[in-house]
Write a protein that binds this DNA or RNA. Structure first.
Lengths: 233, 233
DNA sequence: CCCTGACCTTGATTTAGGTCAATGCCGCCA
DNA sequence: TGGCGGCATTGACCTAAATCAAGGTCAGGG
């Protein structure tokens, strides 16, 4: 568990401009609410307003809810990332931890208000929004037009980039999310996700280690099955 | 067709701060490239960089491309809206007109560079990104977890909000996009979209007028079929 | 005004992935 | 360190939507 000071310093270093005056820093600091949550906990955020959440440690998922208990994982987030959690509209959103996590929670409106005249902070918010938008658009393509195999392959390639580590020359991923979370992220069922893992394993493209470990044996083959565009436009 | 001056004035009024100095305005103006495109034309944007496009008139679609010719309409945009068109990454994106349109095209990097110290312009970009992100997340839920009927119902409710007009007390929509575009937006085939229209028509929820007109006879019933969250969280 | 081609609708059949139902296995904690 | 409970895998079967295949219809140009 990180102290509030450690967390805020890390946040400020990554998302606030270096030149910000002490009093300005303090104002942002006073908006930050530290949340130290165990594994698999849904944050009780006020659904009436937007929030901004900084991940100090751990891993989280942002989930959208439709009728009949159907859930869609809209995004996963990892340490040092900033997420915007939308207020409830036609659907509602919840943020949950995948593992024990340290988070800083801000009310979006208050944060944006403090930032309204600071270009550097605004740029940081804009960067955050743009990278979330770009991942969200990729996800639309995956959900709308890809087969189950392609979805899992795309997912694994994406996770390799974000949380993969090199080990014996191969990429290794320690997935913090369950099969259910993967299914809810890819618009599939847990059974289908499991079958796709089996297929990739039988093809020798990945190796699974326990429930959460994945070794990418043949990244090229995985990318080839992800449905990416190959030839020039 | 609108003149460049008309288009830029409209753009500036909506997306640039009122107090901006004349020279600053001129700099933004010099970045704007007017594009007057006929119906169903793909804009030839350099795929190597991001672009910012303002819709002066008409209607456009942003399409993501996967392998094997599969397309996903990632967003539709209408007059007065600003869109970010991403550079090519694992997938490529194209912007096409749905009807004859007047557009202003900016290179994103140049625009952002000019805006980098102006909080008001940055806030405008941030608003654009946030509303695109929020629509994109809703779309993920639709594509990942909704049935064909719910997808079409959600689509029609959304279009009603964006381009619907009141007529004889009912909402009327003149859809600028074809069944193929709707299918590519909802992750379905044109046949399924057509069948869902037939179902909604037979239920008396909508009435179709020609190929593009849709009269929403019973908006409540349509919303009820959209898979929205109903009860309190 | 009517011809034509593109778009849309409808029907028959197929299939990818969902659902239902066991069984297996990991990892945690006593 | 062994037992247990939740997660993951596997198998049999089902169904929503895709695919394949005709027709129908509308809007624009001659």
């Amino acid at each position: 568990m990180m102290t509030f000071a450690e967390q805020f310093d890390r946040f400020a270093q990554l998302h606030l401009p270096a030149h910000l005056g002490d009093d300005a820093i303090l104002r942002f600091r006073s908006l930050a609410r530290p949340v130290d949550a165990a594994r698999d906990v849904a944050l009780g955020l006020d659904e009436g307003s937007d929030h901004l959440v900084f991940v100090s440690s751990g891993a989280i998922k942002l989930v959208a809810h439709a009728s009949a208990g159907r859930n869609q994982v809209v995004a996963f987030h990892f340490p040092d990332e900033l997420v915007v959690v939308p207020a409830r509209a036609e659907h509602s959103y919840t943020l949950s931890t995948l593992r024990k996590s340290d988070l800083l929670v801000f009310d979006y409106a208050s944060f944006a208000d403090l930032a309204r005249s600071d270009p550097a902070v605004l740029r940081s918010l804009l960067d955050t929004a743009r990278s979330s938008l770009s991942r969200s658009r990729e996800k639309s393509l995956t959900l709308g037009r890809k087969t189950a195999t392609e979805r899992l392959a795309s997912f694994l390639v994406g996770m390799a980039h974000r949380i993969g580590v090199e080990r014996e020359g191969l990429t290794f991923i320690d997935l913090p999310m369950s099969r259910r979370d993967i299914a809810d992220s890819l618009g599939l069922t847990i059974e289908t996700v499991s079958r796709q893992f089996t297929i990739l394993r039988d093809l020798g493209i990945v190796r699974t280690v326990g429930k959460s470990g994945v070794q990418l044996v043949d990244l090229r083959a995985l990318e080839a099955r992800a449905g990416y565009l190959t030839e020039a436009a």
